[in-house]
């Protein structure tokens, strides 16, 4: 069988130990799959979505309840988005715990971190597009954080929102960012990230001489495994989307008191928790940026690892990074669950 386009996206062979699910957790591949799912379901949603304050929530309800399989498409988009964020974090943690961040892959780690930030912004902007009572508090509180930045805050807020309060301009801007601006960046950085995976020599593994298991997996088999994984992932996603509908609320109303509780989307709950400490700029902007900075700095703590330890779980030479990683993740998890 001559290799197809999809085969050519892969190297001819890859080291077998590092190709195992127990090593990769399938997270990078799942992220690609979920991104593609999001592109397709998002494109379908665009046929119905109306980005105006009066029309948005109604069009979401129309899509959810009245368009044949519209609810399923919306649920798939929602769960793929939540899944993408989760598998991206798992992917990052996996890379940090297996030493995949070490040279020459440091730059690609930062690209990946950039993708994670983009995914969070994509999640938030998509969440806001519901424009219903369920998102009102988070929209107001979240965007007010920008206002809290000393000096440039008010100006940045107007650039983001197109006015002094959430209104038609803000919705169109969130829409434009969500379906084009952020997607463009996501595709560019995403393709770059994948390109760098191959350029940096594929999944991190010890130099050939130091490998105990020198078996290699040919791309025919790899693609076959990926297809099976994709089929299973599709089925799981469909089942989740069938039984767990995406959140939806009554249309946003300026006059009615908020019907929903003041609650950020789950991926910003840790920021909401931090904000209880007081100053919005410090706790809501500086600390989250510091977390991102800390994550970016992790590869600098231990720029290179013992070569024989690369490509295996919890290499001894990467202890500090591993402890820091788990510390950050645990802290964020606790803040989220509090």
């Amino acid at each position: 069988m001559s290799p197809s386009f999809f085969h050519h996206l892969h190297p001819p062979t890859i080291p077998k130990p590092q190709a195992r699910f127990s090593h990769t957790l399938g997270a990078g591949g799942l992220a690609v799959f979920l991104s593609l799912t999001l592109l397709v379901t998002g494109a379908l949603e665009m046929f119905y979505y109306v980005p105006t304050p009066d029309g948005a929530a109604e069009s979401v309800q129309m899509l959810t309840f009245l368009v044949p399989y519209g609810g399923l498409v919306r649920n798939l988009h929602f769960w793929a988005a939540q899944g993408l964020l989760i598998v991206s974090i798992i992917h990052m943690v996996r890379v940090l715990l297996t030493g995949g961040y070490a040279a020459p892959r440091r730059f690609n780690y930062w690209l990946g971190l950039g993708l994670l930030a983009l995914i969070i912004f994509l999640d938030f902007s998509g969440y806001v597009l519901r424009w219903d009572e369920g998102i009102r508090w988070a929209l107001v509180a979240g965007t007010n954080l920008i206002k809290a930045i000393p000096g440039i805050g008010p100006g940045a807020y107007r650039i983001l929102m197109g006015g002094d309060a959430p209104g038609p301009a803000a919705l169109v801007r969130f829409y434009a960012w969500h379906i084009f601006g952020l997607i463009l960046l996501f595709i560019i950085v995403g393709v770059w990230h994948i390109f760098r995976v191959r350029r940096d020599g594929g999944i991190a593994a010890p130099p050939p001489k130091l490998r105990q298991n020198r078996e290699r997996l040919p791309r025919n088999e790899l693609v076959r495994i990926e297809v099976v994984a994709m089929i299973v992932a599709t089925a799981v996603l469909i089942l989740i989307s069938t039984f767990f509908p995406a959140p939806i609320g009554p249309a946003m109303s300026e006059t009615a008191p908020p019907t929903a509780e003041a609650r950020a989307p789950w991926f910003f709950l840790w920021v909401q928790q931090l904000l209880k400490n007081g100053d919005a700029f410090f706790w809501g902007v500086l600390i989250p940026l510091a977390v991102l900075g800390l994550l970016a700095a992790l590869p600098l703590i231990r720029p290179s690892l013992a070569p024989e330890e690369i490509g295996s779980w919890l290499p001894k030479s990467g202890r500090v990074v591993q402890i820091a990683t788990l510390g950050i993740i645990l802290t964020l998890l606790i803040l989220t669950l509090l």
């Binding site: 089925a235 089942l239 989307s241």
Partner: peptide, 10 residues
């Protein structure tokens, strides 16, 4: 088969 089952369920 799993995918078929999921689609039928949907």
């Amino acid at each position: 088969l799993f995918l078929l089952l999921a689609v039928l369920t949907a």
